[in-house]
Design a protein around this nucleic acid. Structure first.
Length: 104
DNA sequence: ACTTTGACTTGCA
DNA sequence: ATGCAAGCCAAAG
């Protein structure tokens, strides 16, 4: 059911190109729920629980580029390692959004 | 059935 | 400029 909020999040996240990232806020805004960025996080959490590995949840970060969801991965470093493997550059512990931010 | 918390963001003090 | 509070909606205790 494409009307399901979760499914819409999945489709959008699936469209993030390799080496790019987006934020919870941008996804929420694209779905018409600008102030409900939290729900995006819940949807992604559901991805982890459902083993939806076809969805690159590691390419979704918070508005600062910080990997706030890393604790929900297999290991706290898996998220960053995957991003770096795609060529994403980090500034300290945060993604260089000015280079890699992707908007729907 | 009610309360608390959460992979967030924005706004006001 | 920094810090605290509120808003959003759903799930788990």
């Amino acid at each position: 059911m494409t009307n399901d909020f979760y499914e819409r999040v999945y489709e959008l996240v699936r469209q993030i190109p390799s080496g790019r990232v987006t934020t919870y806020g941008h996804i929420a805004e694209a779905l018409g729920m600008r102030s409900s960025a939290r729900m995006v996080g819940w949807a992604l959490n559901a991805i982890a629980l459902r083993d939806r590995q076809d969805i690159p949840a590691h390419r979704v970060v918070n508005r600062f580029g910080a990997l706030s969801g890393r604790q929900h991965f297999e290991t706290p470093y898996a998220m960053r390692e995957r991003l770096e493997a795609e060529g994403v550059q980090f500034i300290g512990d945060e993604v260089d959004l000015s280079r890699h931010l992707w908007a729907p």
